[in-house]
């Protein structure tokens, strides 16, 4: 496009920071990077559902960080005199079979949920990224070997494999996390490999090779940054599934053990009272639903912002 383009935004208006961030000639790498992030945020902001999703995730993080302060009662303080109390001004979401405040337990349970999510993401995403980019870049027999291993893991149903691992390692939240992480990485490896193969023959990779860049530098500095965005989107969208798997293991008694206020375990203990005291099981269920929805909305929004195919046009 030549100069007949008439910009009505974004430069020229807005505050000082706005203008600094959108400067067409940034003065440092730092400013350029921040400007790019800010532009992404401006695009993201236009998707209202994604902003709601982000709000839910921020609320989850805040609840986890401030749990002891905002929770009205301690999570594990039984009071049998008020067991299975319905919703009231004292206990907004009622109490469970041991008279513990459900709201407080959900708030404290957010820590466990976040713990699972973060650990799975830290373990599974980098493993998948590394295996996928190396396989895609190297090609040949290394690609064959790595991808067949990936296929083996991919062939097991997720929950069954997790069950097998937990059965072998013993129940507990850490083992549940390891089990979920082991089943979560293969799709990421697949995505990263597919992206790498399309990038591998790009001219900018050839140019870097002609400068003498070795495979490690190429994969780390040139290939991975381009795989990252689709991976982030996928991981975010997978979060809902990971929460559900963790809750499922908890429900089956193989994840977090009582009296930990894990949401899945809470539903499990509430199912005995399902018909008469429905809130005991329903409230943690709603929490799982809302957080899963939040991650899905956020993932959709991120896809719009980060999708590399829409870039540079």
């Amino acid at each position: 496009m030549t100069t007949q383009v008439k910009y009505t935004t974004p430069e020229g208006q807005g505050g000082r920071y706005h203008r600094w961030l959108l400067a067409s000639a940034p003065r440092s790498r730092y400013q350029a990077r921040l400007g790019r992030a800010y532009q992404a945020w401006l695009t993201f902001r236009q998707n209202r559902l994604a902003v709601i999703g982000l709000g839910i995730i921020i609320a989850l993080v805040a609840a986890a960080a401030l749990a002891p302060i905002i929770a009205p009662y301690p999570p594990n303080a039984p009071d049998l005199s008020i067991r299975l109390a319905p919703m009231s001004a004292e206990h907004w979401l009622g109490t469970d079979e041991l008279g513990r405040d459900i709201l407080s337990r959900i708030i404290h349970g957010s820590r466990l949920t976040l713990y699972v999510i973060v650990l799975v993401a830290i373990i599974a995403a980098p493993v998948g990224l590394l295996i996928g980019t190396v396989a895609g870049y190297a090609g040949g027999w290394l690609d064959m070997v790595l991808m067949r291993i990936t296929d083996i893991f991919l062939a097991f149903p997720k929950l069954i494999l997790a069950l097998a691992f937990v059965a072998a390692l013993g129940p507990g939240i850490e083992n549940a996390i390891i089990a979920i992480a082991i089943t979560a990485w293969p799709p990421y490896a697949r995505i990263a490999r597919a992206e790498t193969i399309t990038i591998r023959n790009a001219d900018f990779i050839k140019a870097a090779r002609l400068q003498g860049a070795g495979p490690a530098r190429l994969i780390w500095g040139h290939v991975m940054p381009l795989c990252l965005s689709s991976l982030i989107v996928r991981v975010t969208l997978d979060m809902a599934g990971i929460i559900l798997t963790a809750a499922g293991l908890g429900f089956l008694g193989l994840g977090a053990q009582p009296p930990l206020p894990e949401w899945g375990a809470m539903i499990s203990s509430g199912r005995k009272f399902m018909l008469d005291q429905w809130w005991v099981a329903a409230m943690p269920g709603i929490a799982i639903f809302v957080v899963s929805l939040g991650f899905n909305l956020l993932g959709d929004g991120l896809r719009d912002v980060l999708d590399p195919k829409a870039e540079g046009q």
Partner: peptide
């Protein structure tokens, strides 16, 4: 578009 107006043919 929301961001800008381009007059491609004038």
């Amino acid at each position: 578009t929301r961001k800008e107006t381009v007059e491609a043919v004038r």
